[in-house]
């Protein structure tokens, strides 16, 4: 079978969780280290993206019987919530004065 030989490349849940951990940690670092509020705000969607990757990975590899799509559903809701959060944050920061 194509792609299933002894040297076939594959990815498992451990790889997915490593990528999710890297994204969450990078977002936490940005949120903690940055002095500017907008730069710190940019770390939050990064953490949400990492959490979404973990949810989708668990839905893909850890679904115990039946079509378990809750992880994908939660990733969708996280992406939408991050957009709302950033819109609120930028709106509260306010417009740059032209003077």
């Amino acid at each position: 079978m194509a792609g299933q030989g002894p040297h076939a490349m594959s990815a498992g849940i451990v790889s997915v969780l490593f990528v999710a951990a890297a994204l969450v940690a990078a977002g936490a670092f940005a949120a903690a280290w940055r002095r500017d509020l907008s730069a710190a705000l940019a770390g939050v969607p990064l953490m949400f993206a990492g959490a979404g990757v973990a949810f989708v990975g668990v839905a893909r590899f850890g679904a115990a019987g039946g079509p378990q799509l809750f992880g994908q559903e939660f990733a969708v809701l996280l992406a939408v919530a991050s957009l709302a959060l950033v819109a609120l944050g930028v709106g509260m920061a306010g417009r740059e004065s032209s003077r």
């Binding site: 997915v16 002095r35 500017d36 509020l37 907008s38 705000l41 940019a42 969607p45 993206a49 979404g52 989708v56 990975g57 839905a59 893909r60 994908q72 990733a75 969708v76 992406a79 939408v80 991050s82 957009l83 950033v86 819109a87 930028v90 920061a93 306010g94 417009r95 740059e96 004065s97």
Partner: peptide, 30 residues
Amino acid sequence: LSAGFAAAVALVCYAGVAIALAGPRYRSID
């Protein structure tokens, strides 16, 4: 990971986040 619908929604939402944060018209707050 076979999550095409989530991919489409995530691409749209995070691209919107990127556009909102890259804009020059909001203030910097320390």
